[in-house]
Write a protein that binds this DNA or RNA. Structure first.
Length: 257
DNA sequence: AGTACCACCTGACGGC
DNA sequence: TGCCGTCAGGTGGTAC
């Protein structure tokens, strides 16, 4: 989600209030529930007025009439450019503006998706997305997560519970709260859950402040050096790697009980 | 109903 | 040098 917030800021700085002349779809696979012709017709001669982020989704208002929805998967990004030499290598969608610039939806692994929606609430309801991780207050957080029965890591990553936490940020939150990623939700005390909530917000805010660039995060963050054989920034012990409901979890067995 | 896990896709990387 | 297997990460579908 911090990356998506950075894309939102980039989008707002580059692509608002410019007439769209044409849309090119280079990889149809990224279109979700819409056809290429539909998207082209919808965007032609319109303009982006503003954008909003919810979890990992970015919503761009198109002339106040409807929303263009972006989901970036793992490798998606945006690039605003003019010269051909600046065209990104895996652009799946290009939006051509009247001013000669283009906005590219670049996505090497094609896990990203683009679609059209009419209201954010309707879209969130259809996807059954939880509240945004930066917006949710503790009582709502507790209630949402309390309905789960699996591991704390998979609950944090479940977009229906809270929207916005991915694999690497769930690791960071649990590392800083000193909770083992395999711990069951029911075994977490209220006080620790409160810490999870406040650490979640602080970590996401810190990540955004650092432009979602892992190498500029504080040195005591697990994410600063999330690689095989890394040492724990707390105790110097070896960081372990395990699978938790199919995802790779990095954690310190000594600090996270 | 809810949880676990694989497929999707591509490039990087390690091993032989 | 080069080929092959493995891995990464988010989501959606499927299996349990």
């Amino acid at each position: 989600m911090p990356e998506v917030q950075i894309f939102k800021e980039y989008f707002d700085a580059t692509s608002l209030d410019k007439e769209i002349v044409e849309v090119e779809v280079k990889s149809k696979e990224i279109l979700q529930k819409i056809t290429e012709n539909y998207l082209k017709a919808k965007l032609k001669e319109e303009e982006f007025l503003s954008s909003q982020r919810h979890g990992k989704y970015l919503f761009a208002s198109v002339s106040g009439k409807f929303l263009m929805v972006f989901h970036f998967g793992m490798t998606g990004s945006l690039k605003y450019f003019k010269a051909q030499k600046d065209e990104p290598p895996h652009d799946r969608l290009l939006i051509n503006f009247r001013n000669g610039y283009q906005l590219a939806f670049n996505d090497q692994r094609k896990f990203g998706r683009v679609t059209i929606a009419y209201t954010i609430d309707e879209f969130l309801a259809e996807k059954r997305l939880g509240k945004d991780a930066l917006e949710i207050n503790f009582p709502d957080f507790k209630e949402a997560i309390g309905k789960k029965s699996g591991t704390v890591k998979s609950a944090l990553m479940d977009q229906h519970v809270i929207a916005g936490i991915g694999n690497i940020y769930s690791d960071e939150i649990l590392f800083q709260t000193r909770i083992n990623p395999k711990k069951k939700i029911g075994e977490i005390e209220n006080k620790a859950l409160k810490e999870v909530h406040s650490n979640m917000r602080r970590i996401l805010e810190t990540a955004i402040k650092n432009h979602a660039d892992l190498q500029s995060y504080p040195r005591n963050y697990l994410l600063y050096n999330r690689v095989r054989g890394a040492k724990c920034p707390n105790c110097g012990g070896k960081i372990a790697i395990v699978k938790v409901s199919g995802r790779t979890a990095y954690f310190c067995p000594n600090c996270q009980k």
